[in-house]
């Protein structure tokens, strides 16, 4: 896709590109290159000199059981966030799509959590789930559950999942609703005439036709859980207790901040970059497919 009518000017296009290219070079490419370089270096204890050590940092990382624990936590965390927020959003979108009055009003009431900062979402949920003052925590305790996210890793992970999924419902709801409204009524009506009940229609027609949207949202939700939940985790649990809520991004942050392991932190960054590249590629393949359909 190219324009036929263009302007010709020798220097102007470079001047127009300059601001963006400059910011990109200084704050994207240079740091990314530094991360890659650092991941192959080992600093001495005083940070005075550093040696090129090939893949030592990576080998150390993959020998470290705590890295696998973080990997597993990230996997469980993003899977739960995606599953929870996608299923709630789908249920609500199907209901809103069911030709009821006030669908736009419901939409207004459901989309605003998108605008709440992840860190603020964490604060709101802490206020509900804190074992000593939270209202919901009190409810859980009165039901006989020994709710204590400060000591119990599963409880801590649960509360971070809840806060993160809560924020993502609105996004998923919007896209599911748009996807549902794009399904031709005639297809569903034809099935209804053939005698398929609502439940069967949903499983055999609506859900398969919605699968491109679902797949797209799945990728978006995983990217969200990986990278955009830092604020939620930092306000709620700081990765604890005993690293039970430490995701890959949080580990890069905490390993580098304690100052010690710059090479290891850089190696983790590089692995994260590879994950982003993979996820972006999947996302774009999907978008291309959708365009050609």
């Amino acid at each position: 896709m190219e324009k036929r009518a263009t302007f010709s000017n020798r220097y102007l296009p470079y001047a127009l590109l300059a601001p963006q290219i400059l910011v990109t070079l200084i704050f994207f490419y240079w740091p990314a290159a530094q991360a890659i370089r650092q991941s192959f270096m080992l600093e001495d204890a005083f940070g005075l000199s550093s040696d090129f050590v090939w893949f030592e940092n990576y080998v150390a990382l993959f020998k470290d059981p705590s890295y696998y624990q973080t990997l597993w936590t990230t996997f469980v965390f993003s899977g739960s966030v995606a599953f929870l927020s996608l299923s709630v959003a789908l249920l609500l979108a199907v209901m809103a799509d069911a030709e009821i009055r006030g669908a736009t009003a419901y939409r207004t009431f459901l989309i605003w959590p998108y605008a709440v900062a992840p860190a603020v979402a964490g604060v709101l949920w802490i206020f509900m789930l804190d074992p000593s003052l939270g209202m919901v925590a009190r409810g859980l305790k009165s039901l006989g559950l020994d709710w204590n996210p400060r000591l119990n890793g599963t409880h801590a992970l649960t509360q971070v999942v809840l806060a993160s999924a809560w924020k993502q419902i609105s996004y998923n709801f919007l896209f599911f609703l748009a996807g549902l409204q794009a399904i031709p009524r005639s297809v569903i009506e034809a099935a209804a005439i053939d005698g398929a009940r609502a439940w069967r229609r949903f499983w055999t027609i609506t859900l398969p036709l919605l699968s491109p949207t679902t797949f797209f949202l799945l990728v978006v939700n995983i990217v969200y859980a990986f990278f955009d939940t830092f604020g939620t985790i930092d306000t709620m649990t700081q990765g604890g207790p005993a690293k039970a809520t430490e995701t890959l991004v949080y580990k890069v942050y905490s390993d580098g901040r304690l100052g010690g392991d710059l090479g290891g932190s850089a190696a983790q960054s590089v692995i994260l970059m590879i994950i982003v590249i993979g996820l972006t590629a999947v996302q774009f393949r999907f978008v291309e497919r959708r365009v050609t359909y």
Binding site: F28, A32, Q34, F227, F230, V252, L272, M273, V276
Partner: peptide, 22 residues
Amino acid sequence: WMIFITLMLPVEVRIYPTYKVA
């Protein structure tokens, strides 16, 4: 392409080197 690839470099994956540049 140079601009396009920045899609794949969110702040979260390059925090410390970017911090150092800043």
